[in-house]
Amino acid sequence: MNHLVKIILLTCLISTLVACSSRVPNTTEQSDFLTHYEQLQEVKTPSSNIIKAWKAAQLETTKKQKLIFTPIEFKPLNKNNKMGDKFTTILLNYTNQQIQHELEKHFELTQHSGPEILRFEGIITSVDATPEDFKFYEALPVMLVVAGTQLAVGSRDADTNIYFEWKVTNSVTHTPLYEAIRKNKGTQLSNTEQTITLEDLKEAIDTIADEVVPNA
């Protein structure tokens, strides 16, 4: 293998690693829950996270409107995103509690639809543990062998992640007024064979709840 080919392969590999370390969901990490994924733009949140979001010009969040809160559901992206029933229940209960509490600060919650009443809906699409983001020095050929070996035996640190999509619509016409998707990192596990618990994801869920209202 000549020197030029090695450089090309290494460049491609580094690009792949950078893409894998992205904290913004890509097209394979989104469901069919939202209406127009192509309208979503990257936005920096107060917590310095990057999310993808879109807001209609007519959505007014400076005044306290009425809003129907629809409990968060788990809608797995694919068969690999399954969670046990007990963990799903615990996760959804905590997520609903935190998000509803935040919405109550900005909206008057109601159970009745109306022309001027909004509806909030959200889903968790996945909870997973992925190998810790590669450091720059690990992109060197000699380190890739070591890092690859560590990953294969499951001894590498793993990042926990939770994927969340949500939207605000008109409760009568169902017209989209706000749509967003995000991927938040939870507690780091010592390896990919550990079991993820609610405690590992609480901080990530709290951040999602704090920033669930547009321009809050």
Results as ranks from 00 to 15, higher is better:
3 H>R: 12
8 I>G: 00
8 I>W: 09
10 L>D: 11
13 L>W: 10
14 I>Y: 01
14 I>V: 11
14 I>R: 02
17 L>C: 12
17 L>S: 15
19 A>T: 10
19 A>C: 11
23 R>I: 11
28 T>G: 06
30 Q>R: 14
30 Q>N: 09
32 D>C: 06
36 H>V: 08
39 Q>F: 14
40 L>A: 09
41 Q>C: 05
42 E>R: 12
43 V>A: 06
46 P>M: 12
47 S>P: 15
49 N>Y: 08
49 N>G: 08
50 I>H: 08
50 I>W: 11
54 W>Q: 04
54 W>H: 03
55 K>D: 11
55 K>H: 12
57 A>P: 06
58 Q>C: 11
58 Q>P: 08
61 T>V: 13
62 T>Y: 06
65 Q>W: 07
67 L>N: 05
67 L>P: 11
71 P>K: 04
71 P>V: 08
72 I>D: 02
73 E>D: 13
73 E>S: 15
73 E>Y: 09
74 F>H: 13
75 K>C: 09
82 K>I: 12
82 K>N: 12
82 K>W: 02
84 G>A: 10
85 D>W: 04
85 D>C: 01
88 T>Q: 03
89 T>C: 07
91 L>K: 01
91 L>H: 05
93 N>T: 14
94 Y>D: 01
94 Y>P: 05
96 N>T: 01
97 Q>V: 01
102 E>G: 05
102 E>Y: 04
103 L>E: 00
104 E>K: 10
104 E>Q: 15
105 K>F: 00
107 F>H: 00
107 F>M: 01
108 E>Y: 05
115 P>H: 04
116 E>L: 10
116 E>P: 07
116 E>C: 07
117 I>M: 06
117 I>H: 01
123 I>N: 06
124 I>P: 03
126 S>I: 10
127 V>C: 06
127 V>K: 13
127 V>Y: 05
128 D>E: 08
128 D>G: 05
128 D>L: 05
129 A>K: 13
129 A>P: 07
130 T>H: 02
130 T>Y: 00
131 P>K: 08
132 E>H: 07
133 D>N: 15
135 K>Q: 11
144 L>Q: 09
146 V>D: 06
147 A>L: 12
148 G>K: 05
149 T>F: 13
153 V>F: 11
157 D>C: 08
157 D>M: 14
158 A>V: 08
158 A>H: 09
159 D>G: 07
159 D>T: 15
161 N>W: 12
161 N>E: 02
163 Y>Q: 09
164 F>Q: 03
165 E>Y: 02
165 E>D: 04
166 W>M: 03
167 K>H: 02
168 V>Y: 10
169 T>S: 06
170 N>R: 13
177 L>I: 08
180 A>R: 14
181 I>Q: 11
182 R>V: 09
183 K>I: 11
184 N>T: 13
184 N>E: 12
185 K>W: 02
187 T>M: 12
188 Q>Y: 07
189 L>N: 03
193 E>I: 13
194 Q>M: 11
196 I>K: 00
197 T>Y: 02
198 L>D: 00
200 D>I: 00
200 D>Q: 03
204 A>C: 02
206 D>N: 14
207 T>W: 03
207 T>F: 09
208 I>S: 04
210 D>T: 11
211 E>C: 08
212 V>S: 05
213 V>N: 00
214 P>K: 13
216 A>T: 08
216 A>V: 06
